[in-house]
Simulated assay, not measured.
Amino acid sequence: MQTISVTEFRARAAEMVERVQNGETVRILRHGKPVAELVAPSVERTHLPRWKTPIERPFVIQRPDGKSGAQLIIEGR
């Protein structure tokens, strides 16, 4: 793990991101106290939440009477 100050991080941000891509962790200090850590994303963090995953098949609701939503709308007009 590399530890650097905020000022140094600003000057060498691209280099630090490259180190993180290579699997290293970078800890950023402000006034000698840790304020952030740069780590590569894990597999768990990169997956999409369930509500953002694409629907693979059309969403179909089966009613007990066999009518579709479109049929009910047409009948209601």
Results as ranks from 00 to 15, higher is better:
2 Q>K: 14
2 Q>M: 10
3 T>C: 04
5 S>E: 01
5 S>Y: 02
7 T>D: 09
7 T>A: 14
8 E>Y: 13
9 F>W: 03
11 A>I: 08
13 A>C: 11
13 A>D: 09
14 A>R: 13
15 E>H: 15
15 E>D: 15
16 M>I: 14
17 V>K: 10
17 V>Q: 05
17 V>W: 05
18 E>C: 10
20 V>K: 11
20 V>Y: 08
21 Q>M: 11
23 G>L: 09
24 E>I: 06
25 T>Q: 14
26 V>P: 00
26 V>F: 07
30 R>S: 13
31 H>F: 13
31 H>R: 15
32 G>C: 06
32 G>S: 00
33 K>V: 07
34 P>V: 07
34 P>K: 01
34 P>I: 03
36 A>G: 05
36 A>C: 05
37 E>G: 03
38 L>T: 05
40 A>Y: 11
42 S>L: 05
47 H>T: 12
49 P>Q: 07
50 R>W: 02
50 R>T: 03
50 R>K: 06
51 W>A: 04
51 W>T: 04
53 T>R: 08
53 T>M: 09
54 P>Q: 04
54 P>E: 08
55 I>W: 03
55 I>F: 02
55 I>T: 06
56 E>F: 08
57 R>S: 11
57 R>F: 08
59 F>D: 03
60 V>G: 05
60 V>I: 15
60 V>D: 10
61 I>H: 02
62 Q>H: 14
62 Q>E: 13
63 R>V: 01
64 P>R: 05
64 P>E: 06
66 G>H: 07
66 G>W: 04
67 K>A: 06
68 S>Q: 03
70 A>R: 09
70 A>H: 05
70 A>C: 06
71 Q>I: 02
72 L>S: 02
73 I>H: 01
74 I>S: 06
74 I>L: 12
